[in-house]
Design a binder for these strands. Structure first.
Length: 647
RNA sequence: GCCGGCUUAGCUCAGCAGGUAGAGCAGCGGUUUUGUAAACCGCGGGUCGGGGGUUCGAGUCCCUCAGCCGGCACCA
């Protein structure tokens, strides 16, 4: 007999070899019905697995979050069976669960079409209706290889070979169909239920390597019940509504066009937002001791060869040939230019750390398939800076950068920030010894600053290791923005030096850092994060003064003049339209506040304020209203400055 | 860059199986002077992404290029 301990603390005795399914049935009929898998001493196992010894046992029902992965994994198997049913000769490869559902990669010469997806979905429903049990089998390695070889499943053969020696080759069977799989699975195909949907079709490289053949990936999602599925689909629609590309058009911020792929045409309103961001960053940087500069957009190719960019980054660079037959590179980074500024004039150790900042527009020839609105462009503005310092100053300067970045993100409401540590990539300049020192210096800096970054192996810049700051937005998506890189290579390559206390020449270390990263991307992230409802200080148009009747026109003009004189970005709408129409239009344009002026307001010298998304209005005297807006429109850093002044 | 899809008026989208382009909104002209998310009437507006081909005839079929969308790979 064995003793099983349940989550509520109860214990029961059973014969050895009993299965979790049998235990569930013993406890209650309804539990048996809802059971998907079992958690045995914390590990998920099939309900049908025999239990041989004392253990903690928990029956995982389909409402349990852990069951969702099982449902999705089961759905992936059902998908694979459906596909092989409908399209004989298609090879199956892998079909894992992912955050939003699952996918399965297939190898087939003919492409799948969106219509195929519907047919596959219908076949999946049939398989689910047949309710075939999932059964686990342990196969002899050679037998498994023979089986898949006979079926022409070459990818599965590769997968079997990748299973470590000594580990079982596990096969899961559902009816006549079977798949190599680690498991666990639910009791039967019927338990997948009806709340699933195939969502998209895509190409994907075998094993994620672009040198490998491309497979066809079918994405799907599945949930425990219809409501959850519906909620998920609604969430997707919501994400589409906040797509910055759509908001950019609706709010008249920017556009793209064919002649300039990956390049933004900023409209007046979008540029206002952009400048507001730069203004904020400039104030924060100035306060932190940075000196702003401007370096050339084009420099001779020779300089980029010297820096190593030509060799390591050349395929991403725009190059131009001039009538005098010189080759100039359009800068993909600002660092070489900043080194030139550092080099100009003799520097002393007393000048260090020297912080050079630039809102530099960089140009990178990104692969066409990577372009995506403002979030991935070929021409973007970095809030870039380089800190020239001694090796001994790295730690303190890194800590300062870290503090500044986090403080800035907080000002924009991003509190959830992940930090990643990227070490030496394959394609790099500099000796291993130098990389050892650079990586160690950055690690030490992390330790001193109390940062515990997640390791991101092989993802460093070609000249040095880096920290990457990834922020999470309002709907849970991650965006890489800031970066801090330790560079022992470029200053030396480009001949930068300073005179030390010993009177000798020394090569400085250079810290590269960006906080927004790309201004374009950051603007896009902000738009999506706020669904276009920007806080007042960032809104391109902060207030629209809208009249109800032409009798109030003169008063409205006075209100506008007062708002503008107070430094607010206000516009006026005197059109011969109903107030309903004006409210709707400016609300759709995401204007934070509409100041309505009718006959009543004109007579009383008041304004009626309607805030974006709020039905209720409030009335206030003009001066009081202006003061309120002025206060609210203060950027967060200036607000802090005012508070500390008052204190 | 790779796989698949898409590209029709400023925007959103119709256009069935090849027969010579249509709606709503926006715009323009009137009427209406209006109280918090679309007043009414009328009028214009398109080399159907570019190029080539098949055909008596192509928005519709084929080829090709570009851009965009979704993934993959790459990445701020």
């Amino acid at each position: 007999m064995i003793t099983l301990k349940f989550p509520d603390g109860a214990e029961r005795q059973y014969r050895a070899g009993i299965t979790a399914a049998e235990v569930a049935a013993d406890i209650s009929k309804s539990l048996a019905k809802k059971a998907m898998v079992a958690r045995l001493d914390g590990e998920l196992v099939d309900l049908s697995a025999p239990i041989g010894a004392d253990a903690r046992l928990e029956i995982v029902t389909r409402d349990d979050p852990a069951a969702l992965e099982i449902i999705r994994h089961d759905a992936a198997h059902v998908l694979a069976e459906a596909v092989q049913d409908l399209f004989p000769g298609t090879q199956v490869t892998i079909g894992p669960v992912i955050e939003s559902g699952f996918y399965y990669d297939f190898a087939r010469d003919e492409p799948f079409t969106p219509d195929d997806l519907e047919a596959i979905e219908r076949r999946m429903q049939e398989i689910i209706r047949r309710d075939q049990p999932f059964t686990k089998e342990i196969w002899n390695r050679d037998a498994a290889k023979k089986h898949f070889a006979e079926k022409g499943e070459t990818y599965k053969l590769e997968l079997i070979d990748a299973i470590p020696k000594g580990e079982d080759v596990r096969i899961y069977r559902q009816g006549d169909w079977l798949d190599l799989c680690r498991g666990p699975h639910g009791p039967s195909t019927g338990r997948v239920g009806g709340a699933f949907k195939l969502t998209k079709l895509a190409g994907a490289y075998w094993r994620g390597d672009s040198r490998n053949p491309m497979l066809q990936r079918i994405y799907g999602t599945a949930f425990a019940n219809d409501n959850d599925l519906k909620a998920y689909l609604t969430m997707l629609e919501e994400a589409e509504r906040r797509d910055h590309r759509r908001l950019g058009r609706e709010m008249d911020l920017f556009h793209f066009q064919e002649e300039a792929p990956g390049a933004v045409f900023w409209h007046p309103k979008g540029w206002t937002l952009f400048q507001e961001l730069i203004g904020y960053m400039r104030r924060r940087q100035d306060a932190a001791g940075y000196h702003e500069v401007n370096s050339p957009d084009f420099m001779d190719k020779q300089l980029w060869e010297q820096s190593g960019h030509w060799e390591k980054f050349g395929e991403n660079m725009f190059v131009t040939e001039t009538p005098d037959e010189r080759l100039y590179c359009c800068k993909p980074m600002n660092c070489p230019g900043h080194v030139q500024i550092f080099r100009n004039g003799l520097k002393s150790y007393r000048d260090l750390p020297l912080k050079i900042a630039e809102f530099g527009k960089v140009h990178r020839y990104e692969p066409s398939g990577a372009l995506h609105g403002l979030l991935r462009v070929r021409h973007f503005t970095q809030d870039d800076a380089h800190i020239f310092c001694t090796e001994g100053q790295i730690s303190e300067e890194s800590a300062r950068v870290n503090e500044l970045i986090l403080s800035i993100y907080r000002d924009f409401g991003f509190d959830d920030v992940a930090i990643k540590f990227s070490d030496r990539p394959e394609k790099r300049v500099g000796s291993d010894a130098v990389w050892d020192r650079a990586e160690q210096a950055l690690k030490d800096a992390c330790r001193d600053a109390g940062i515990e970054p997640e390791l991101n192996p092989g993802e460093g810049a070609f000249y040095g290791p880096k920290l990457e700051y990834v922020l999470r937005d309002a709907i849970g998506r991650d965006w890489q923005c800031g970066t801090l890189q330790v560079d022992f290579n470029l200053p030396g390559r480009l001949g930068a030096f300073y005179i030390g206390a010993d009177g000798e020449k020394h090569t400085p270390v250079m810290l590269h850092r960006a906080m927004f990263g790309s201004l374009e991307r950051f603007a896009g992230i902000l738009l999506e994060n706020h669904a276009g409802h920007l806080p007042l200080w960032l809104a391109p148009v902060q207030i629209v003064v809208a009249t109800i009747t032409s009798e109030a026109d003169n008063y409205a003009r006075k209100v506008l003049a007062t708002l503008q004189a107070a430094g607010l970005r206000a516009e006026i709408d005197l059109r011969n339209e109903k107030i309903n129409y004006k409210v709707r239009e400016h609300s759709l344009a995401k204007v934070p506040a509409i100041v309505v002026c009718g006959k009543r307001e004109a007579e009383e010298g008041t304004v009626n304020i309607r805030r974006l998304g709020v039905r209720e209005q409030c009335s206030a005297g003009l001066d009081e209203a202006v003061a309120g807006f002025v206060d609210e429109a203060l950027p967060p850093d200036l607000r802090r400055a005012r508070l500390s002044l008052a204190a």
